[in-house]
């Protein structure tokens, strides 16, 4: 089994460097990069946010361990990938799920099971999954429990309080009542931007604070765990489309800043779309991947039924990742450019 799997590995163009990077080290570094956003989420949504995320992490670890035991394979829980999936999944859930009447605490558990067992292990385990496990877990939950998954708590109500007022997300208001109403709710435009930047707005636990996610993303960029290609092309495409088509009535009247900082755009672009397994590995292809994600996100946000489209956009582009990897050829290190190669013949 191991031998056949090794032969299936898709290897990028040489040269290859042997380093002390391991899967678990990458996973832990990404988890650390998520910490600012996670802490911001706990700051704004209180203990419920912490409980939901912890529940997701433990459910993911348990699902992985039980599945491995069931099929009789060596446990791989210690590589940290299941914990990272759980953390990402928890950060993509609304804090309001921590509620016992109506009982919705089972939702994170089932979503974790779907993410780990159905999305990852049934496709062959880490490295073989077609789709981002955390996003499939969330999509499954959103489609199965549309009501419970779209109850948003008002942020920063009280840190320790276990009951909170509910409200609509900025994107929800934008979809239902328009941009004018959104600015009215937050006072003025500057105030709205500040709320979006710091994360003081309704939304999933870990997606609200644009600045915290940006810090984590830049940290990953600095550590060279991700490259700029996917996030930049994703965000730039979304911004351009939001600017051109986002306005009511007229072209070039949209608000790109609002669209970039609301919903799951930041978290999706920096942490979800850049997943090694489900994104193309060739740089040019990654740019196309990012453009596709941005395009689909904005189509869903502006024309679709859901207020937010980042999740579905990334999942749809995940399908195309293998195709993109085939269509683009990586630049060979030290190789001649094609025209030059022809001339030299």
């Amino acid at each position: 089994m191991e031998a056949t799997k090794k032969e299936q590995l898709i290897v990028s163009v040489s040269p290859h460097v042997r380093s002390d990077e391991t899967t678990s080290r990458i996973m832990w570094t990404v988890s650390i990069a998520l910490m600012p956003a996670f802490l911001a989420g706990i700051w704004f949504f209180g203990l419920r946010g912490l409980f939901i995320t912890t529940l997701c992490i433990f459910s993911c670890l348990a699902s992985e361990q039980l599945y491995m035991k069931w099929v009789g394979r060596k446990s791989v829980v210690s590589d940290g990938s299941a914990a990272l999936t759980g953390l990402l999944l928890g950060m993509n859930m609304p804090a309001s799920l921590w509620s016992f009447s109506p009982f919705t605490v089972h939702i994170p558990v089932i979503a974790s099971f779907v993410a780990i067992v159905i999305t990852k292990q049934l496709f062959g385990g880490l490295g073989f999954n077609v789709f981002n496990p955390a996003l499939i877990g969330r999509a499954f939950a959103l489609i199965s429990w549309p009501k419970a998954m779209t109850i948003w708590n008002e942020p920063a109500a009280a840190f320790l309080a276990l009951d909170a007022k509910t409200t609509a997300t900025p994107l929800g208001i934008l979809k239902e009542e328009g941009a004018a109403k959104l600015i009215e709710v937050f006072g003025d435009k500057m105030n709205l931007y500040m709320h979006l930047l710091t994360g003081n707005r309704a939304g999933s636990i870990g997606e609200t604070s644009a600045i915290a996610i940006l810090i984590g993303g830049l940290f990953l960029l600095y550590k060279r765990y991700i490259t700029w290609h996917i996030p930049v092309s994703f965000l730039a495409t979304s911004a351009v489309i939001a600017w051109i088509f986002g306005g009511k009535g007229a072209l070039f009247a949209g608000d790109p800043v609002l669209h970039l900082m609301s919903g799951g755009m930041m978290l999706g672009a920096w942490f979800m779309a850049t997943d090694y397994v489900t994104a193309p590995s060739i740089r040019n292809g990654q740019i196309l991947f990012g453009i596709g994600c941005g395009f689909l996100t904005m189509i869903i946000r502006l024309k679709g039924g859901y207020p937010e489209g980042v999740m579905f956009a990334i999942l749809i582009m995940n399908c195309f990742a293998p195709l993109i990897d085939r269509g683009f050829r990586a630049k060979v290190f030290g190789g001649l450019k094609q025209e030059k190669a022809k001339e030299s013949k």
Binding site: I110, F140, I143, S144, W145
Partner: peptide, 13 residues
Amino acid sequence: PLLILVLPAGGFF
């Protein structure tokens, strides 16, 4: 209990 199962995606599941 699990609305996704009556939707087309759930049919495949």
